[in-house]
Simulated scan of single mutants.
Amino acid sequence: MNYKIRPAQEGDCAQILALIQELAIFEKEGDAVEVTVEDLKRDGFGNEKLFHCFVGELDGAVVGIALTFPRYSTWKGPIIHLEDLIVAEKMRGSGLGTALLNEVVKYGKELGVKRINWEVIDWNTPAVKFYEKKGARVLRDWDVVQLDEAGMENYLNNI
């Protein structure tokens, strides 16, 4: 396939959001996406960039994304987090996921980070196998911990 990997541009945000929604539906969380096109524009292309995104483009359409943001490890120093690597269903198996991951790893190397972190849902066996094949360690003995907005409010009300 003749796709192109490039840094995302502000004009890609609607297509990026469509891929985010496609992933949410795949992960059985179709109603969970709250982010808007305006949020993506502000947070990725505004004065204070909160994320960096690569897109995979085919015939002018965004068919894959890899969205990252900086983190800091108290043990290692600067790292980046790969929030999502999304490949449109019609493009799976085309090599686009590998091309996007390659770009993220090159980006991390250029930044001089010590590690790249991400999560994968445990029942997505093809994704787990894909990452392991690429040499990533899937740490099955760690649990993801989150406080959502309601959880933060509850927490603060109980201190």
Rank of each mutant, 00 (worst) to 15 (best):
E22V: 09
E22W: 03
L23G: 02
I25V: 15
I25Y: 05
F26V: 06
F26Y: 15
E27N: 04
K28V: 12
K28D: 15
K28I: 14
E29T: 12
G30R: 07
A32E: 14
A32D: 15
V33R: 07
E34K: 15
T36W: 03
V37C: 13
V37P: 10
E38V: 08
E38T: 13
D39Y: 05
D39T: 11
D39R: 01
K41M: 13
K41Q: 15
R42Q: 14
D43R: 06
D43G: 06
D43W: 07
G44P: 02
G44V: 08
G44A: 09
G46E: 04
G46A: 10
N47I: 08
N47Y: 04
E48W: 06
K49Q: 11
K49M: 10
F54M: 06
F54P: 01
V55M: 10
V55F: 05
V55I: 10
E57V: 07
E57A: 03
L58S: 12
V63K: 14
A66F: 00
T68F: 03
T68C: 15
F69S: 11
Y72K: 08
Y72V: 14
W75E: 06
K76N: 08
P78G: 12
I79L: 09
I79Q: 03
H81W: 14
E83F: 03
E83T: 04
L85G: 02
I86V: 15
E89A: 13
K90R: 14
M91C: 13
M91G: 08
R92H: 14
G93D: 04
G93N: 02
G95S: 12
G97Y: 03
G97L: 10
T98K: 15
A99L: 00
A99G: 01
L100D: 00
N102Y: 00
E103M: 02
E103C: 07
V104K: 00
V105D: 00
K106M: 00
Y107R: 01
K109D: 09
K109E: 13
E110L: 12
E110R: 15
G112P: 07
G112C: 11
G112N: 09
V113G: 04
K114L: 07
K114I: 05
K114W: 00
R115Q: 14
I116S: 03
W118F: 14
E119R: 12
D122W: 09
W123R: 10
N124R: 13
